[in-house]
Design a binder for these strands. Structure first.
Lengths: 226, 226
DNA sequence: ACGTTTGTGAACGGAGCGTGAACCGGTGTC
DNA sequence: GACACCGGTTCACGCTCCGTTCACAAACGT
């Protein structure tokens, strides 16, 4: 398993001991900059953020993670019982939380459950939709069992779209979520990539990507099931 | 919000009090059979299963829920600290857990977080009124489960109207709220869009938009008269 | 009956998008 | 170091669609 990102540096001794005893590999970080710099080649396996004395820094790190600056999933917050109210209005910043001081077996159970969920639900190595299959490990794509080769950007764009079937994205959103940085003036770039994707998908499946005029693009056929 | 399914029947008094104080609607069930029988028309809003004395019955209920016999998502387990090991190997049976005896504010936070996650991830943002459904993230519209395709302006106008059913808007108001704050254009533009909307809604539902002479337009049937 | 307000059909003009091709920085090759 | 190659970006052009407008007919209120 990829190493866990742990904040702060150094973490509370009992947390460190629990992680070691549990056989986890982990690395403490002092702030989001350290988190970015020390990201392992294949990303972090998850994050444990202790909201204690450095409450502000902790939430800043969580925010950075959720903004995608650091690739981490899932994120567990350890928080003092007296600070419980800080969780409110921050639901988007964590996947689970544990009250400090924690019972070691509770934290163990939460970690196990979190990774169980992560592995089985949020980390399928295949993205499938209709005749399209994307293998996230090998960066290969196939339509109707026939492999098609996509460039990096084409692959990333298609992956993002296929992971959110039905949803419409503006060009700006795509640029920031797929390209990953704020962009100045090149919204038409998206069009061109969409065109090449449609071309490579083949005439039959080009309609997998539909244009929503004045808004953006949508992947997939309409689904009205709830 | 749809009522919560709570096990056992009756639930622990402190749990019942917390749910009442939190403004939740909920219904206790004694076993999976009761859960199936008493399912509300629009399903359960979630489940809280207390694993206590009736441990076996609790897990049986959870299993039934996860098998799809009862439509519930998400599922929170409340479990005594001494029974923590029962969680192991049962990760697929719950979304979150809380240790009993619980701190009220912790349970509150878990419920809130659970529903926040459920709502934002699985439920599409919908605007519904009668037979009309607007899916805000896919920019799709449907009447009587049949998709209709609207242009951008038609969609925006209908969305605005449907979000304020019953209220009358002048053409000027619509122009400024839907088209944009400073819009220099003829007020008759609104008429034309209204007409096209009525046409696309179909003969049967054209009256969803009614004309208020000398004032403007109103969406939805009047509550006061037929 | 008349004036005002709204519905209707049609036409215009521009915004938005698809398309082909050029541009440009990076990388490997000889 | 010169070169070709590849992939991502940008540009220019043309077409389609749709938002807007207009003119006239119908409906409504006084």
């Amino acid at each position: 398993m990829d190493p866990l990102l742990v904040f702060p540096d150094p973490p509370p001794p009992d947390l460190a001991r629990l992680l070691d005893l549990g056989g986890y590999t982990w690395k403490p970080v002092a702030d989001e900059k350290a988190a970015v710099d020390q990201t392992p080649d294949d990303g972090w396996g998850g994050a444990i953020v202790v909201v204690g004395d450095q409450s502000e820094a902790a939430w800043a790190l969580a925010r950075a993670i959720r903004k995608g600056e650091v690739t981490v999933e899932p994120l567990l917050v350890v928080i003092g019982g007296a600070r419980l109210d800080e969780l409110e209005l921050r639901d988007e910043l964590f996947d689970d939380f544990c009250i400090d001081p924690f019972h070691p077996r509770e934290l163990e159970a939460r970690l196990r459950h979190l990774f169980w969920r992560g592995r089985s639900s949020t980390e399928p190595e295949l993205v499938e939709y209709g005749a399209l299959v994307l293998n996230l490990e090998t960066y290969q794509a196939a339509v109707d069992r026939a492999p098609i080769d996509l460039t990096y950007m084409e692959y990333e764009l298609l992956k993002f779209l296929a992971q959110h079937p039905g949803k419409v994205f503006t060009r700006e959103t795509l640029l920031s979520r797929v390209w990953g940085y704020e962009y100045y003036g090149g919204a038409r770039t998206v069009d061109v990539h969409i065109r090449r994707l449609r071309a490579k998908l083949g005439e039959e499946h080009a309609n997998l990507i539909s244009t929503v005029r004045s808004v953006g693009y949508r992947f997939g056929h309409s689904r009205w099931s709830a």
